[in-house]
Design a protein around this nucleic acid. Sequence first.
RNA 1: GGCGGGAUAGCUCAGAUGGUUAGAGCGCAUGAUUCAUAAUCAUGAGGUCGCGAGUUCAAUUCUCGCUCCCGCUACCA
Length: 681
Amino acid sequence: MNNTKNFNRTLITSALPYANGPVHIGHLAGVYIPADIYARYLRLKGEEVLFVGGSDEHGVPIALKAKAEGITPQEVVDRYHYIIKKSFEDFGITFDVYSRTSSKTHYKTASDFFRKLYDKGEFLEKTSEQYYDEEAKQFLADRYITGECPHCHNERAYGDQCESCGTSLSPLDLINPKSAISGSVPVLKETTHWYLPLDKHEAWLKQWILEDHKEWKSNVYGQCKSWLDMGLQPRAVSRDLDWGIPVPVEGAEGKVLYVWFDAPIGYISNTIEHSPSDWEKWWKQDDSKIVCFIGKDNIVFHCIVFPAMLKAEGSYQLPENVPANEFLNLENDKISTSRNWAVWLHEYLEDFPGKQDVLRYVLTANAPETKDNDFTWKDFQARNNNELVAVFGNFVNRAMVLTHKYFDGKIPSRSELTEYDSNTLNEFSEVKSALENYLNNYRFRDALKEALNLARIGNKYLADTEPWKLAKTDMERTATILNISMQITANLAIAFEPFLPFSTEKIVRMINKTDLKWNMLGSVKLLPDQHPINPAELLFEKIEDETVAAQIQKLLDTKKANELKNYQATPQKPNIAFDDFTKLDIRAGKVLECQKVPKADKLLQFKIDDGLGGRTIVSGIAQHYQPEELIGKNICFIANLEPRKLKGIDSQGMILSAENADGSLILIQPGKDVLPGSPVM
RNA sequence: GGCGGGAUAGCUCAGAUGGUUAGAGCGCAUGAUUCAUAAUCAUGAGGUCGCGAGUUCAAUUCUCGCUCCCGCUACCA
């Protein structure tokens, strides 16, 4: 086990955000806040830390977006890279370097990396048939092929996925495929690509993950185990595309590194950009700890594929931990860029200027560490008002105001401690080890709760000792109480620094003390006697009902706009000749038998009375109808569609349904009884 | 269908390698208090620990089956 190992420095990587849109609260909660908390914590402890990040700027979606807007891919990524970078700066994410995969350094690093693996013979070369655009003279990536979705018959499905019904597709599935570049009909042509043979790495990966890293989070460990148990397959590392890093091999014109191969090397390139002369110590010395913060969608890449790449190269260390978070939902619905169902960071700051810490707090307190969680504006308001304002802000304000009122803004001297004082001090000095334990194990939600506990201790202390009463009779005792209260305040500035850096900066200003370090946490001598403090300012302010109501309304408007958009009927297809129509043999039929197809979620197997002796049809409507309710019903079907095997069953035709905007399917049924086999026209 | 994660108080979540009264924060109720942004402090009510079996002296914790949610994957003519 490596977790007893001693490390001398820590390299923190965070998933590279894809530069085809701005970043939202899901990105922040899942990856960047946890990574930043961890980085700040280690720095505060005086450890050697490097926190690297950057934009992921290659790949087909960006190339397509550029095409759609009539600009270059570089212009697309320039636009979003700077928005993303600014959002991170605004929220206090302390990257030591935030770069991008379109940088020169990265081109060289990624090329060299590929070339080294190529020279070592770590790749397989395979030839396969892919669609080729003869007009544009290039191979077409999955996304570059559009056509009719075989499932929902949306005319504008992509070669990898239909965005209308969400189904993932292969380009060969599309009906009437068309090139997105020239509009011509693509042809199949042979192309050669390089593959990373993951199967060859399976044995050591199994040992490394399943035996040596049992301490990884259960969601991470579980997903890796699932993949390893299924058996690993070679994965292509190149694509036919004109936006990306060219494959550095003779005769590979028109081919680029597949974006998943290119992106993680970005971590290395970013390290090189930051420290060109001694970057290798972070990656190649075994006293360096590499920790990769990612979302759950990236687990396999970071735990299996990327380590396999590093191992194949030979000189790199592997990640020590990959603390992946689950997903954050927004008001009970999945966050979605394309549906605009998100809280964008740059918009949040327009509506809540200066309130970065409130969002940092809420996203940490409710972080999806063990399962998907839900962000709601009501919860946002409640946590701000009941926790930040009432517990944390209030305590600091009470201590500050009382010290100004009774001691003219100077830390009063402590005299004899009562037993109660000592108990309180003991209690809060224990917070340090609890906090460290949580932070070391990537349990940031619990750690934050523990930090807040410090403020709770403070509030209780003031309530129990009542210095505002004692001030009338016993100034010496009052002095002791306020001294302790201000020491607690100074401790809060340390404990909260990794989580709420803007607020702790405020406290630091108020208490007029700047050199606070993590190892001082728990000390009761942070502020010397007679140390002058500055005027009190409020750390947080209440958020009113109207404010969150406005945010909720904003989302409801979005939802309404989406619904309207979905309700729009798709444009009519081009006219066809009557002859074409008559080629289709559509008929009415009666359901004789109907049952679920075993081992398939969506398929029902029908026996249809077609007036010709009956036929079998398999249809993907199992999620919308129970088999029993369909027996004896009239339906319509296409009789002369080429038969096709589905899950081993010969399907002789296609049953017609209408599809609602929400994806539900409604069978087309004749309103009155008709004889089986009657033509539909 | 296969695989992984999850299902514990009204809400958000902890937890136990099986063992006396299952925890926290918020919310709620009652009381105290007024230094503080009507903030704080105390006390209390609230749970057949998803459902059904099994193993055991004992299961919410282990095993098996099932249901629901999330993800990966197969399937969708």
